[in-house]
Nucleic acid binder design. Sequence first.
DNA 1: TGTCGCCACGACTCAAGTAG
DNA 2: CTACTTGAGTCGTGGCGACA
Length: 319
Amino acid sequence: MDDRAYREQNEKTIRSTQTALRNFRDFLVSKYPTETREIYCIPCQELDIYLASFFVDARQRDGSEYEPNSLANYQCGLERYLKEHHYAYSITRDREFQRSQDALKQKQLELKFKGKGNKPHKSMKLTLADELLLRKRGLLSRFNPEGLLNLVWLNNTKAFGHCTGFHSSTLKWGDVLLLTTETGLECLEWTYQDFTDPNARNRRSTTEFRIYATPHAPQTCPVQDYKEYAQRRPQAMLFEDAPFYLSIKPVVNLAALHWYNCQALGKNKLAKMVKTMCEKGNIPGRKTNFSVYQSCSTLSEAQSNQLVLICNDLRQQAV
DNA sequence: TGTCGCCACGACTCAAGTAG
DNA sequence: CTACTTGAGTCGTGGCGACA
């Protein structure tokens, strides 16, 4: 591979290649300590045996088995590395590497049989039922700081999260505007200005996204959530450039007007919003922020209305 | 099927804010 | 002030899925 082609390789691909290489080298060091050659200097018969052994016996750091896909990725990564060093064979195709190819196939079958390869890290949808439970358990609520923060975060993420250029961690207070439409309905508007768009000079390259108020269901109205959040923010954090999400005051006085610090909520917290609220709410399943995107894409209008009705019932029961 | 872009997430370090 | 919490920044690992 020439320099130009090498540079054009994606950064992530390079990283992936290096990961494969590191894991394979570590494996060699631990299992065949006398082997010190660069892997592209090892003759094919020997390398084939090492690879077969790697696919069969390699384990993750914690001792558990790899996912079948990871092993295949490693094979590809090592292939890229060997190609870079003009190795004479293809470990994925050539018959000289039949043994390791078979070992990989066999291992993948074995792992699948053991129940691996079922996408264990795939995040699960945040369902309507989940949301209801979260509301019931105060994790989506206007009546406590954490619930309120979760609520506005969820409203925003559902409405704007899928848009290019929307990032929770950089969202400013002034990025979301409270407006009233011509028909008198209130709404929240997020405007995306694409500064990278080369056409921006010629035309107005902005896109608007909105969340509309639901006056028929005030208890679950996202605009009301926003207004409540605005009230609970310290006065000093109401300027345009202030971070949208603020950290919660450690000692919470529910009776106090302001519930939040003058400090931005960090990315560590933002990245785990769904995970944290689902854990605290005892919601089963693997839930991540991505779960929200999965649910909003499939949430029909009928389902939304149903949610509103159920939540209203809940509220009345609670009173 | 292999390549590659993207994402989630944990681990780690160091800096800064907050309570007492 | 100190102890503690939480932030930002960064890296490594590994999974998912679009695409050719």
